[in-house]
Design a protein around this nucleic acid. Structure first.
Length: 753
DNA sequence: CCATGACGCTTTTTT
DNA sequence: AGCGTCATGG
């Protein structure tokens, strides 16, 4: 191919074909190549395009070699997309470029300089499951009541520390907190020690160790500072403190860093992302410039204005004014339902209608707050035979059989991996149960060796009963033999052999449970996947770092996913169901983080709306099954935050269905009261004069509706039924004689004459 | 060591 | 409801 000559000829002619279709700020963002640059890019303003074009421009104009560019993304998907699009644009392989996620790039650096932080280059990257088991072990040793102090919580405390770049020695006393009676820091210390003994790291360590390498060895740091002439960072609003420190260190000197982000789309604060990174960019990097991309090419003006109206309720924004030249279109459809089932039915019917109008299903998406909410839609679509796909469901590599199989490989590659050995030591059953394991671990701890070595030592004694001793001896011999064979054959064949010889395959073949067959299938698929890699260890690295869902997005199916996983995607039609207080905004989120979390929930709503190109449907139900209990709900405050002029409101169900309503009304109101009592947030203000849904749902003190006593026989007014006379009352429930007949109504829906 | 039933918890998620 | 963990008893 003549790609190189072709590109350089373009350069000589000064054509830069790829710059032609950019708008003014985009062009500026691509061409401002010296000094720190923050690109504030609103939803749908072409930020990925700018990033890719910028990268291409740097290379084409020969400002840097491919190996001198560092491009950091947040997800593997984004990294792959960037590689593909850059390759397509400049027709050159991206192989020598450092394009990847924070974690994969750090892993690359860490493998090279592992010894600086007391690791060996073949260290294992633990998954969540391993992490939990490890922290549990540590806590058990320290006699912590695991019921009172859940290991998962401890893990998240550690993760938050790591997110901030804090090693155990950096944690200040006042940060320790009440967890595990103040033992959280010692647990953290022991956990880190155990990781080193296991020659293992967790995800947070990838960044943290890398920071420590830079701290300990200036030479290594200089090497990378010199190497990377240009740094590009995507989704900067999602970076945590450790990651921004990492960037700052590498960028120091050359100072050519360009970060792209949108503070309004920061939705990962709950796992340590720091919105302040983007807010403080100009302070963190001297002489920084900021360019705003504000022309939206994705959505109609109704959609964009709705989203802007919603997000304008947040404080502390950098502020952007998005605009679009795509005029008109449909208003946002807002609809209420009696229950979740009605909602799913109606949405599925609407989808069929759209389908008849030649809409592609793959251009339709249902975005929910929490994944359990997907089920209602899945069931409905299944019933109707509508094809759908769930994005971000359970992952292939998280299945038990796959993890077990990989655990075998991990022990072969790295015998210090106690967690992997522990996982499979009795799978298939070998009669090595909990008590045996305890003996082994006790020995390991007293000798300061890993589990594998402990077994080696213990089987040379008579501590164990003969049958056990023999099984363990056989197992170790097997592992030793596998290690000698690993390089003598094709690696996927080797893996198949291990699974076979270990008896793992046989275990599932003999299993009569209905899912055994599927598991065998998965194992076959695993071997097939391994074949695609150069080596077993590169496969395992892939599994630990990439873990991607191989979805073929090409099939014409409805997309169902959470709001979180929708970021970065776009669809013609977006359904946003389940907009009820407690669910969205999520109550737990609110309880934990108060006002800040409320704003993050609102950003989530903003992300949801801005995914749509043509149509948005927001809906909520009055009743919903939660843990199999029917609960009355009130609509999300976000519903009334969408500006009225961009909304098409469908008639409320509440007014049409008084009969069904009366059964629920007691719980309906106590629910609302409880909600505001529990929530740290005061009831929100309503827009006066707005009939639906705010006027009767989100009553506040300013409301002109009746708050206090009314008498039997008194004449009152109801929005829908007009004037009537109170016949009887029972708590909040009133029976009122209207001209159209006797209705049961909630007191709060009534105005005094 | 393993099977069984009681108990209890249940957001978002990528790496 | 549904799953996972834990304690109990065989």
């Amino acid at each position: 191919m003549n790609t190189a000559e072709e590109t350089s000829s373009k350069v000589r002619e000064g054509e830069y074909f790829y710059l032609k279709s950019l708008n003014k700020p985009q062009l500026e963002a691509v061409k401002s190549l010296s000094g720190p640059l923050l690109i504030l890019a609103g939803a749908g303003t072409g930020k990925t395009r700018v990033l890719i074009t910028r990268l291409a421009h740097i290379l084409v104009t020969k400002r840097a070699l491919p190996s001198e560019v560092l491009a950091v993304t947040f997800t593997n998907k984004a990294a792959m997309e960037m590689k593909e699009r850059v390759e397509k644009l400049i027709r050159r392989s991206t192989e020598t470029m450092w394009i990847g996620t924070f974690h994969s790039l750090c892993a690359r650096i860490l493998r090279k300089h592992a010894e600086i932080v007391s690791l060996k280059t073949n260290f294992t990257i633990l998954d969540t499951d391993d992490q939990t088991r490890l922290i549990k072990q540590v806590m058990e040793i320290k006699n912590i009541d695991l019921k009172r102090w859940p290991p998962r919580s401890m893990l998240s405390i550690i993760e938050r520390w790591k997110d901030r770049g804090l090693s155990p020695t950096d944690v200040r006393d006042k940060e320790i907190g009440k967890f595990a009676s103040g033992k959280s820091l010692t647990i953290y210390e022991s956990y880190q020690q155990r990781l080193i003994t296991l020659n293992a790291v967790d995800f947070g360590d990838l960044i943290l160790h890398c920071l420590n390498i830079f701290k300990k060895s200036k030479d290594v740091l200089f090497e990378y500072q010199r190497k990377f002439k240009f740094i590009l960072v995507d989704e900067y609003q999602d970076t945590n403190i450790a990651q921004s420190l990492w960037l700052k260190k590498i960028a120091f000197g050359q100072n050519n860093i360009c970060c792209v982000g949108d503070d309004d789309q920061s939705i990962y604060a709950w796992r340590g992302a720091e919105v302040d990174n983007i807010l403080n960019f100009e302070k963190d990097f001297s002489d920084a410039r900021t360019i705003r991309l504000e022309e939206n090419y994705r959505s109609t003006s109704h959609i964009l204005s709705s989203a802007s109206g919603l997000i304008s309720h947040n404080k502390g924004r950098l502020g952007k004014t998005l605009w679009t030249s795509i005029d008109g279109g449909e208003k946002i459809n807002i609809k209420s339902f009696w229950n979740g089932k009605d909602e799913a039915v109606s949405i599925s019917e609407e989808i069929v209608r759209l389908q008849k109008k030649k809409s592609r299903l793959s251009e339709i998406s249902i975005l929910v707050r929490a994944s359990f909410q997907m089920r209602e839609f899945e069931e409905r679509f299944m019933k109707m035979g509508l094809p759908y796909r769930v994005i971000g469901g359970p992952r292939f590599y998280e299945r038990m059989e796959i993890r077990d199989a990989i655990a075998y490989f991990r022990v072969i590659i790295q015998s210090q991996d106690d967690l992997a050995l522990e996982r499979i030591i009795n799978v298939p059953k070998r009669g090595v149960g909990k008590s045996t394991l305890q003996i082994l671990y006790k020995h390991a701890r007293s000798q300061g060796v890993c589990l594998y070595e402990a077994i080696q030592q213990i089987i040379s004694t008579d501590e164990l009963r003969p049958s056990l001793k023999n099984t363990l001896e056989d197992l170790l011999k097997q592992f030793e033999r596998w290690r000698t064979e690993i390089n003598s054959m094709e690696h996927s064949e080797f893996c198949a052999m291990v699974l076979d010889e270990s008896g793992y395959m046989e275990m599932w073949q003999k299993d009569k449970s209905p899912d055994a067959e599927g598991r065998l299938e998965n194992l076959k698929e695993l071997v097939g996947a391994i074949r695609e890699f150069d080596s077993l260890s590169s496969f395992i690295e892939h599994v630990s770092l990439v873990m991607e869902n191989t979805e073929n997005a090409k099939e014409d199916k409805i997309n169902i996913m959470t709001l979180h996983s929708a970021k970065g995607l776009e669809f013609d039609t977006v359904f946003l169901p389940c907009w009820e207080e407690g669910n969205f905004p999520n109550q737990r989120s609110l309880d934990e983080g108060g006002e800040k979390s409320l704003e993050e929930e609102r950003r989530l709503g903003y992300v949801g709306i801005t995914r749509a190109k043509k149509r948005v449907y927001v809906s909520f139900a009055v009743n919903r099954f939660i843990y199999n209990q029917l609960v009355s709900c009130i609509p999300s405050r976000f519903v009334s935050e969408i500006p009225e002029e961009h909304v098409k409101e469908e008639e409320s169900l509440l007014f049409d269905d008084q009969e069904g309503f009366s059964d629920q009304e007691d719980s309906f109101f106590s629910q609302e009261e409880n909600f505001y009592k529990k929530s740290k947030i005061a009831p929100i203000n309503i827009t006066p004069g707005r009939k639906f849904p705010s006027s009767y749902k989100h009553k506040s003190k300013e409301s002109d509706f009746v708050q206090e006593a009314v008498k039997i026989g008194e004449e009152v007014f109801h929005d829908k039924f007009g004037y009537g006379k109170i016949k009887s009352m029972q708590g909040n429930k009133l029976e009122i004689i209207f001209q159209t007949g006797i209705k049961k109504v909630l007191k709060s829906f009534i105005k005094k004459r």
